[in-house]
Design a protein around this nucleic acid. Structure first.
Lengths: 131, 131
DNA sequence: CAGCATCCGAACCGATACTG
DNA sequence: CAGTATCGGTTCGGATGCTG
């Protein structure tokens, strides 16, 4: 599995940004998806997560490592190479992520419609229920 | 379904507080569970969510209402009575919540163990995902 | 009973700049 | 390449006190 990740794997325009389901931190679920096909390098993961800064991605990866979701393997080469890979525990999240995505495909439009309808009648500063 | 909710429905000691899965805001998933059995009143919902302030619960409920997950019915009585009930859309989250809980039952101990093991070797201020 | 108002602290995310 | 360091802004959740 060495095909490069699709840069548009996570379209920023996709309403999934408004998804009420979250796994770990903001990027955790996406990282899980990125690593679903096998080990990936730091920079490789950054591509589909357009806009994520190295600091934040490092935070996410470190947290996942702490929680036993990924393994980090550094090769003492030049240039340096580091690979992240899902552990069995991390892989166990794939089902959940899939379930969340299935829910979104099926019900997110209705949720978004309800939200839009409320914004019509309620011109109050609608809070963004995004975490 | 008028039996009072179990005050210990969500034990604060339960490691689910460390759960990496979140539906909506912090309390949304628990509210969904509270309303699974039928309509409930504001104060009734507060009981199992020990510690939640009315402000935050109102925020949660309002957001859920906006998103079409619950309906709010106020009865112009004295004393005032308000009931919240899951919509079909809100009920559609029950499967997802169940999936998340199933994952937790099965894998959360391993995650917590991994985290604890890391804290042994890394005495750095480990990010506590709990408030 | 069912909220609302106000203040506060913590968490998280992001931009920018710099290094082995 | 793979990070680290620093700074800042936004959001969220909680405590307290008051009202129709």
């Amino acid at each position: 599995m060495s095909e490069p990740l699709d840069p548009e794997m996570f379209d920023p325009v996709c309403p999934s940004s408004a998804m009420p389901i979250q796994i770990g931190d903001k990027w955790t679920a996406m990282v899980v998806l990125c690593l679903a096909g096998g080990p990936r390098r730091f920079t490789e993961i950054r591509v589909p997560l357009r806009g994520v800064t190295p600091k934040v991605l490092t935070q996410t990866l470190r947290a996942m490592e702490r929680d036993g979701l990924v393994t980090r393997t550094a090769y003492a080469e030049n240039p340096p190479r580091v690979e992240y890979e899902l552990t069995p525990l991390g892989r166990s999240l794939l089902d959940l992520v899939a379930a969340a995505r299935a829910w979104s495909r099926e019900h997110l439009p209705a949720l978004l419609a309800a939200r839009a309808a409320h914004e019509d009648g309620a011109p109050v500063g609608a809070g963004r229920p995004e975490a």
